[in-house]
Simulated scan of single mutants.
Amino acid sequence: MTPVIEGFDRRRVPVAEGVSLHAAVGGSGPPLVLLHGFPQTHLMWRHVAPALAADHTVICPDLRGYGASDKPAAADDTTYAKRTMANDVVALARALGHERFALAGHDRGALVAFRAGLDHPAAVTHLACLDVLPTPDMWDVMHGVTAAVGFHLYLLAQPPGLPEELIAGAPDAFFGHFLDVWSNGQDAIPAAVRAAYLDACRRAVPSIVADYRASAGIDLAHDLADRDGGNRLRMPVTVLQQDWGAALGYDAAALWRAWAPDLRHVSVDWGHFMAEAAPAGVAAELRALLARSSG
């Protein structure tokens, strides 16, 4: 049986021409949207979402190109731009009756959430980003052999053709590598969930590559334009991340503070898949964020 988020309804919601998102929705109260990372689906929130649904309407979509959501062919570099994916999220919330909502994202979902916060400050009341850096900062700090942990960023940035062909030749080995290595030996991802992630990724190689490729092109251009133009995150922001800065030689909190004046930055030892390895801690931090005044 395919794993689900217990107690949540599954819905399919049109968000753009020819694109619908699959989402799990549960609870009642102020809306909170949770965005998953790579190589996962909305199932990564299966522990956190029910806890927060006690007093919030929690919406857990599969991002465009992932899971059971639509996977349009990349007609150009805008198809999987984070701006486009952020627009999907805002359209999803509106279709479910929410003009304003809190937003949290992990990994790739955190980059979508970041873009939504910059592009839609009137809609996003609170923002949480888990275990990422903003795209320009990510590329700036990747150097030397220590950065080999991010080898996939460079592979997936290559022009269309080679990355898709290589990954399609051994998708379970490729995606399974990250599920195993990034779990830090923790038993956070049960076999049934791991199988669901691999099955979803196996069906989405071109769109996942296109998502990553955008971060080396159009996403970077959008973020640099905002940074140079002084656009900043206006809402309360919480960032939870592993202390990659100790290994790569940067101050993560300082990098984030340049984007988010109202920032709570927390270094944690919960591993990359923190919502699965330490759901109580993640839920507590999200509750603390939601309690902050949004001005």
Rank of each mutant, 00 (worst) to 15 (best):
A93V: 06
G185R: 05
A95D: 08
A49I: 02
I218D: 09
P39K: 01
E285M: 03
A191F: 09
A192V: 11
G65N: 02
G245S: 15
A258L: 06
A95H: 01
L43F: 08
G29Y: 02
D219F: 08
A195V: 11
A24E: 02
D219T: 13
I218T: 13
S215A: 12
T135A: 00
S293F: 05
L153W: 08
N231I: 12
W182R: 14
P261M: 10
H47L: 12
E276K: 07
D223K: 00
V4W: 00
D76P: 14
L43M: 03
L133G: 13
A192R: 14
L286M: 10
V25G: 02
L118Q: 01
G229T: 13
K71V: 01
V239C: 03
F8R: 01
A258E: 15
L286E: 06
F174H: 11
A68D: 09
L224I: 06
A128S: 02
P190V: 07
L156D: 08
G27H: 07
A188C: 15
P134Q: 02
R202K: 03
R203L: 11
A254P: 05
M235Q: 11
A91G: 13
A204V: 14
A252H: 07
V4Y: 06
L263Y: 01
E276R: 05
G65I: 03
R232W: 07
G245Q: 07
G109R: 08
P160D: 10
L290K: 06
